[in-house]
Design a protein around this nucleic acid. Structure first.
Lengths: 382, 382
DNA sequence: TGATACTATGAGAACGTTCGCACAAACAAC
DNA sequence: GTTGTTTGTGCGAACGTTCTCATAGTATCA
């Protein structure tokens, strides 16, 4: 009954039935070259009757184009990548392209293997969220081999390729400015800050203070830290090192622990800034466990706008990244390159947007949260 | 400088450099057939030196296998599909397979186009969340053409293919039983219930009451309704039609409206059951807008366990689907078929698990919510 | 000793398309 | 009327692999 290896009908059979050569049948069915109307009808009718479906492998082998985009995401299960992927998929579909997706889990070795697989599958181009922003030898190699790449979310130093990122510095800065405007002076930061290798937090902050940091090829969470620092500097508020919490792992559980430590210790901040969705979840978990009332006991603002922030009373203020747009833009860029665009490489920086809800409250002068520290007095000055 | 179309090194050049035939080089590099150790070394060395990478298109063309799984998801941006996809991707990767993913948005025409594209790309098998559970002609065709399929989340009536689903009836029933055990008798249901065509809600409920409903090939939200009905019947509680809310669209906004209508009308239920993540979000939005306190003013339990249910006080009780596992199982099944497994088609039904948190409270006898209706009196009897 | 494996290699076909070229007819331009 | 350009068609090569088959050496076994 069911044939094990059902032979598909090929262009040869269609050509035979239509009484033309395979070349002619190919021109009709493939939509290239010349063909007369009468023959077109005949061939199409034959194809229809036989149920002909082109074999894209064979076509790809000879044309060198597979109509496929390879995507290396960090983790397609996360809301971030899921939304970006959706954007990519939509644009790809509208142009007749397929996407083959892989997860790197932000591990360099995984990314290498993924890139390797995609290369062997002969994808026409790749969209990659690079794990390693320094060397990225494998990416340079495939670019050199003629496979276009678009980077998303972050930027490999000196890689000749287009990129789409979000303005993390400005986004974070806007958050902190918003909180400062509400009178807060002691603002805690809960951030991943994992991958940066060069030294400790303190030296990074010093470097940044002296304008020695090039934010462009930093990891997003470090860029958001830069925004945090800039906002403080411009408001004339010294940064308290104790308030800057480096979780050191991309884990909600770890973020929760760090937040508990921050909130239960002496000198609790009056406001909190979390630098991505996972940190926010862990932080909210901690706040829930401590049964703190927002925003009376604590103000909070988050990078990444998640679904629940809308209805978790009093509504969590957040800055939203245009994730779908990031995917769509990346897809458009890669498709342009695939179509032979040779214009200079561009780096598109998308603007995030603020969603003000109810989680940032004006700082009460005689509040009972936090301790009586110099910074509290300063708030009266503003 | 940068070559436009960089010719890749082929097996021919490797063979030449190693001083063997292409057939021999192929056997070494492709890992099939016989080859002596001395020649293996020579060939591998040559391949290494030239930076040889196999062209999987060419290999696929001749072997008829692409080492690729096609996936037709509803919307990979939703937490549901994102998690399922991740499960699929993990298993696929571990076996050296790639996945090409598409979104159908649960629209039949989109699904057809997706299946078509995947067919032409010669995927070895497909994992599909079917949109149409009745005819699904396109799926039957490709199965007949010898391309194995695994269905996820739901089941096409009479399709000869493996399937992985969740036990929606039992899951929903467990939720309702849990709520009933807390003393509730008037339990509202917020559910999509969109696609079922045969008649209105009332006639479905009647049909179900007479055992005339085959739950197997129902859409999940209808299966969950069945669980709701069964739990009521077994507890001897009559179903109040007014409490069963058919949102009619897969939209959080619509769910919110429906919930507002339910909670603001006469005879407000004392507990709520939402049948999927999107409904839950819309419902929570409504509850937040009405400023109801959970669980004092209202108990709630949800199908689908979302991240925020953990830390949104008092913690939302929910039933969690094993989504990763669903993807992993589906991937394993399709890989088995691809490897020639011809055992009878199987339908794996995964058990969801209850996460009891704080959103279901015992019903107070003299509560001020709801009206004094017969059902309230019955609660004393139980 | 012969028969029967198993191992090892190469020549050339095959997979299903598109590409390059040759040829011819039709039509336009001078 | 010649020349050129556009249109239409077919033949056979090409894409980069693996497959089939032929050939041959070397163990293994009765």
């Amino acid at each position: 009954m069911t044939e094990k290896r059902a032979k598909n009908v090929t262009i040869i059979e269609v050509a035979r039935l239509a009484g033309v050569s395979t070349a002619t049948a190919g021109r009709v069915l493939g939509g290239y070259g010349y063909s007369s109307e009468s023959i077109r009808d005949k061939v199409r009718e034959a194809a229809e009757k036989l149920g002909y479906r082109p074999n894209l492998l064979a076509r790809g082998l000879i044309t060198g184009k597979t109509q496929t985009i390879g995507v290396v995401a960090g983790d397609m299960e996360s809301p971030f990548y899921a939304s970006v992927l959706r954007g990519i998929a939509d644009v790809a579909r509208s142009r007749g392209f397929g996407i083959v997706v892989t997860n790197s889990d932000e591990i360099l070795q995984r990314e290498r293997e993924a890139v390797q697989l995609l290369t062997e599958k002969q994808v026409d181009g790749m969209i990659v969220a690079p794990s390693d922003l320094q060397t990225a030898q494998h990416l340079r190699e495939i670019v050199a081999a003629g496979c276009p790449i678009v980077q998303i979310d972050r930027l490999v130093h000196g890689l000749e390729a287009d990129a789409v990122t979000v303005d993390n510095v400005q986004g974070a800065k806007a958050c902190i400015e918003h909180v400062i405007a509400a009178g807060h002076r002691r603002i805690g930061l809960i951030s991943e800050l994992e991958q940066f290798a060069a030294g400790d937090l303190k030296s990074f902050i010093d470097l940044e203070a002296h304008g020695r940091v090039d934010a462009a090829t930093l990891y997003p969470s470090w860029q958001r830290l830069v925004g945090y620092l800039q906002a403080h500097r411009e408001a004339g508020i010294p940064v308290e090192l104790d308030l800057v919490r480096r979780v050191g792992a991309y884990s909600a559980e770890a973020a929760k622990e760090e937040t508990l430590d921050l909130l239960q210790g002496n000198g609790r901040p009056t406001a909190l800034f979390t630098t991505d969705g996972l940190m926010s979840a862990g932080t909210m978990d901690a706040i829930s466990e401590l049964a703190l009332d927002l925003p009376q006991d604590l103000s909070i603002i988050c990078f990444d706008d998640l679904e629940w922030m809308r209805f978790l009373r009093p509504g969590i203020s957040a800055i939203a990244q245009p994730l779908n747009e990031m995917g769509r833009t990346a897809a458009r860029l890669i498709l342009a390159r695939i179509n032979g665009d040779t214009s200079p490489f561009q780096h598109q920086i998308l603007a995030p947007s603020m969603r003000v809800r109810g989680s940032v409250a004006p700082l009460k002068a005689e509040g009972h949260q936090g301790s009586n520290r110099p910074e509290r007095r300063k708030s009266a000055k503003a």
